[in-house]
Design a protein around this nucleic acid. Structure first.
Lengths: 251, 251
DNA sequence: GACATTTGTTCATATATCGCACAAAATGGC
DNA sequence: GCCATTTTGTGCGATATATGAACAAATGTC
């Protein structure tokens, strides 16, 4: 790609939008400038452009994103068949399990939720399509990383900030690589309070008819209700069933 | 705002992203150019910029958005307190009603889903945060339009393409304005298969402690299961309860 | 209330982008 | 396989944007 094939004004504008995700919903020009490391004048122009287009509003001091900004992410969710195909299966899965079910794909070192059916609230954080979690300590992340060639999985770990969320979090790269091999062998991953105390989850890969892993689905449950050791027994049959159904409908 | 405070390259890039939402997930340069009415060279530069940043991938022929694009919409969902505050209440509401519950805000002539708790699948379309429906024929839309000054509600209707989705869809502006007054008076709106045959829904406004309507929540149910005439009796108490709880926690 | 600091805005100018026109490549129909 | 059509890539002049400094306004501090 040539230098002139890059629209830096566009790239900077996108950076400004993402700056809103990192903190609160209101940003001053100076705050956005700090967060993005862009010149105040440049940030100001980007923000005024967003306002002009209705993606943000400006009260003279603070800029706030409007719901119109959701059109951008929705361009992906609506256009990509995966979330649309998976959602009904997820709804059914969550209903039968009586617990939350989610689907995600890998984006760099993180898993990105693309669909979710919530039955009850067990996590302290609010997960919606677009939410991100570190892959190494999430059940779906383990499944997705296990599906990668070992060298790539290792590369992801190297780029990850391996910090422990709970005393249970595995953060040793070698231990994690061994875990990926186990997951690959058994076809599922169980997380026992590695992400958040009190939360267990189990995930399986979603494969297309050529056997390629294109996503992961999981079920989360309160550890007090279903101990980590019981997760597979309780939920694996349901997950396997959904996995099988999806294999038949995915392109 | 001065002319030079507008970054047209940014605006054009956003238009290109939205072009993906209108059709399928893969777009060629020429297709994107047609959809956006932008010059091919311009679209090409925008798409290459998206690829360079990891928001899209290019196989030499087609451009496809990646999950990274969800960061943009998520910047709103994560940064705006509303969806985060509403979600757990919605989960509880859906569980108690045994039906899908959603929350939305108004954006122009459309309602935009900002949170959703699904219990079962009744609609043919897949609704996720960011999904949009015409406000005039959706229960939450009726509630949100009823909360506007009459002149503004009328202005929205004038800008709306009032086309009937089903034989039940009300499309006469005067009839709709009368409906808004009724909704304002009774404090809820019921839709009986106006959006989709077989689907009924009931919505109430979500108000903050100053009485301002900041969103709407609804419950949807299959018409075969709960006729439109029974919606209020069945679900209004639950909705009112959630409404009341939200009034106490919203800023 | 005066000073110091931060923030928002404006301006001139160097620089990068835009859209056009053309060339090259790919596609499709027969 | 060939031609017509569509699509993609590129060079260039006109035009628009980014930059950083300078100034004005607001905010915070003592």
């Amino acid at each position: 790609m040539r230098e002139t094939d890059f629209v830096s004004g566009f790239a900077k504008g996108l950076k400004v939008i993402e700056a809103f995700g990192e903190t609160r919903q209101r940003l001053t020009i100076a705050e956005a400038s700090k967060l993005t490391a862009l010149d105040r004048a440049t940030v100001r122009r980007s923000l005024l452009t967003l306002s002009e287009l209705g993606y943000a509003v400006y009260d003279g001091k603070f800029f706030t994103l409007t719901p119109k900004i959701l059109r951008l992410g929705h361009a992906y969710l609506a256009a990509t068949p995966l979330p649309t195909i998976i959602q009904p299966h997820l709804d059914q899965l969550a209903e039968r399990a009586g617990q939350n079910a989610s689907a995600s794909v890998l984006d760099g070192t993180e898993v990105v939720y693309i669909a979710r059916a919530s039955q009850r609230r067990v996590m302290s954080i609010n997960l919606t399509p677009g939410s991100r979690l570190p892959a190494f300590c999430a059940s779906m992340g383990r499944v997705l990383l296990a599906a990668l060639p070992e060298s790539e999985a290792r590369s992801v770990l190297e780029r990850t900030d391996l910090k422990a969320n709970t005393p249970n979090t595995k953060i040793d790269p070698e231990e994690l690589m061994a875990e990926f091999r186990r997951v690959r062998g058994q076809g599922y991953a169980v997380i026992d309070q590695e992400l958040e105390i009190g939360l267990c989850s189990i995930a399986v890969p979603v494969e297309n008819d050529r056997g390629q892993t294109v996503a992961a689905i999981n079920i989360g449950a309160p550890a007090a209700y279903v101990p980590g050791s019981d997760m597979a027994e309780r939920f694996l049959p349901l997950l396997k069933e959904t996995q099988k159904a999806l294999r038949l409908v995915l392109p």
